[in-house]
Design a protein around this nucleic acid. Sequence first.
DNA 1: CGTAATTTTGAGTCGTCTCAACTATAGTGG
DNA 2: CCACTATAGTTGAGACGACTCAAAATTACG
Lengths: 261, 261
Amino acid sequence: MPVLSSPLAPLLRKLEGVTALTPEEQTALLGLPGIIRGLKPRQDLINLGHQPSHCWLVVEGWVHRYTLLSEGRRQILSFHMVGDFADLPSLYLPDLDFTVGTITPVTVVGIPHEALRRLADTCPKIGLWLWKDALTDAAMARKWIASIGRRSAYQRLAHLFCEFYARLSAVGLVQDDRYRLPITQVDLADATGMTSVHVNRTLKELRAAKLIALRGQELTILDWERLVKVAEFDSGYLQVQKVATPKPQIDESGASAGAYA
Amino acid sequence: MPVLSSPLAPLLRKLEGVTALTPEEQTALLGLPGIIRGLKPRQDLINLGHQPSHCWLVVEGWVHRYTLLSEGRRQILSFHMVGDFADLPSLYLPDLDFTVGTITPVTVVGIPHEALRRLADTCPKIGLWLWKDALTDAAMARKWIASIGRRSAYQRLAHLFCEFYARLSAVGLVQDDRYRLPITQVDLADATGMTSVHVNRTLKELRAAKLIALRGQELTILDWERLVKVAEFDSGYLQVQKVATPKPQIDESGASAGAYA
DNA sequence: CGTAATTTTGAGTCGTCTCAACTATAGTGG
DNA sequence: CCACTATAGTTGAGACGACTCAAAATTACG
């Protein structure tokens, strides 16, 4: 299965979750040129203001977008995992309004803008999907605005965990209502507009309420129904269908295929 | 000048601020079918969850996107004025994650999705511009996240006034560092994630600091430099070039042209 | 096994909220 | 045109959520 061992496999899989692709379209997609990069945790991938020439697709690990304000204040703007473009806006906007950094060790593929644009033009289905992906990204940002603006700390964290659950489900990264949450409480704080101290206390409340369990980097949803209610979560905006059962693991550790270095 | 009296004139003007259009492209754009609607203040234009078949372009007045949470909490997600699409996401996303409502009396043009999509496909320049518009919209949302998440109430309002200034400048709605701000303090509160009471007190501080003047619905920037510094505002993300001098008013009150009812 | 990073807890403070009243402004009909 | 009413803005006082500072406990890591 050389196709599935391509670094673009996550992209293909995500796309096929939404539309069926013809063999030609699949080939075109997997034929995209690109460079693979491995990054250590807590490294910047793209710097603010830079004019990237590639779009970076996350193949493995977590990355996040953030901005820095004065006095060391940081605001995380989004998290991205397998199959997400970290900087799709760069495809059509000259300069970025955020920085992209890794959370965990990460594998990304850089796809040249021209190649991606050409594919979008050539293959309407993929062009349309890119549009949708960008718009979904914006919808998530809106949810964050509502969260930070009008939800309590308790609700905010609940909502974030719901979002993670839904998104990770869609890429098969949830098993038995449990997923790996590789971010620190400082990250949670900078994502939700709170203090790490207060995140800590609020997590304690969420645990006490038996909504979640969180040990090490493993988060377990103990009561999805109630968590959703607390968070006022509605997954509609994510444009994903929940993948309930974990997928059998596909070996991707083999040699990469195609034009990859 | 029948072209400028078309309800699509604001769109054309906005587009031409970014790229030069050939006469054919201009004709294609102004030839878009559409329905004009006039709305009273505080009316909903598109309801959450609905599946609109048109994209609504603001011709005159202010509209806003918002969501409602439990207990009557409201979060405003964005404001839109002349030349903005209020619901561009609906063009490619089946259902909307927000409600669009008017602030002032408003004139909008509804452009059928098929027609707009066809134009985007036919005319790459316009297709590209739509992309950019959607991405800029998302960039604004990110700025709001950073604002609400990490800026003080004082900074948040300052930032919002900077954003309005830059955006209204670009469409010629700023004169002598002064613009019409037709929103209430409750709106400001729901946009910035605060309370109208606290908005009131913070406005007082901004006035006391001689950064702005705000009487009735007219906002005057008294010290742009300092306001920008306070807000940590950087207009880059808006993708607009500041229009310093007010444009001569173009008469648009005449009969509408083209396929409009 | 030692060191750094992260999480957890305590105590006091501050920003923002709540509740409540009062004032000003704008719109409406007699 | 003015009284009437609704809406928006302003102010006060007390309460609460979230912050700050600081230190201890725990976990991860080389």
